[in-house]
């Protein structure tokens, strides 16, 4: 595949079809872990790691197990199984090989099991009929887009924390309004790549 094709997938997954702001996947960690830039980045890193590996593995399961056996309808449950096992495995490996990284990622690692953006990437890869490399690129770029969105949100929320917000809007309401505005801002990218 050409560089041009790869760049199209990357730009599209990060900016135009951002998984959080345009497809509204993975909104739970996006709102839950975006109070501090540091933790948001940690979450982003963990998701990037898992999403890239999950894209590769789910592609292989789809291509070599489900399609040959005419069992494509088992996609969702099979992918969840693979992703959950993968997250567990990644956690085991990181705990053994790098306790520092394990400490930094903390609770976010197991939480990724239930991050619908990971499953979303896997399903969208299949639906777009991507090959192995495009799937991997799409997964990684989607995760980078997720990291971008959650980090932007954390930066804004850190400032909101110090601002004088009307009492009725404090906490969750102002966060949801911010998320909406950020999403509208990203709509500006639509139509950038044809």
């Amino acid at each position: 595949m050409s560089i041009r094709e790869i760049m199209t997938i990357v730009i599209s997954a990060i900016l135009i079809n951002n998984y959080v702001l345009q497809r509204f996947l993975g909104v739970c960690p996006y709102l839950g872990v975006s109070k501090q830039i540091e933790t948001a980045l940690g979450m982003g890193m963990a998701v990037t790691f898992v999403m890239a590996i999950a894209s590769a593995f789910t592609w292989m399961v789809q291509r070599y197990v489900l399609v040959p056996l005419n069992l494509a309808f088992l996609q969702t449950i099979a992918f969840i199984l693979v992703i959950a096992a993968l997250v567990q495995f990644v956690e085991l490996v990181i705990r053994k090989s790098s306790p520092t990284l394990y400490q930094a990622l903390g609770i976010y690692l197991p939480l990724i099991t239930t991050n619908c953006a990971v499953l979303g990437v896997a399903v969208i890869n299949v639906r777009a009929a991507y090959g192995f490399l495009p799937s991997l690129v799409n997964g990684t770029a989607a995760a980078v887009g997720f990291t971008l969105a959650i980090t932007l949100m954390a930066g804004i929320r850190e400032r909101i924390e110090l601002s004088d917000i009307p009492p009725a809007l404090r906490g969750v309401p102002i966060t949801l309004i911010t998320a909406g505005l950020l999403s509208i801002a990203f709509f500006g990218f639509s139509g950038m790549v044809k």
């Binding site: 197990v65 056996l69 099979a78 096992a85 495995f89």
Partner: peptide, 14 residues
């Protein structure tokens, strides 16, 4: 069968 085998392989691997 496929899910059971898949689950078994992943479980054994884990």
């Amino acid at each position: 069968a496929v899910l059971a085998v898949l689950g078994f392989i992943l479980g054994a691997g884990l």
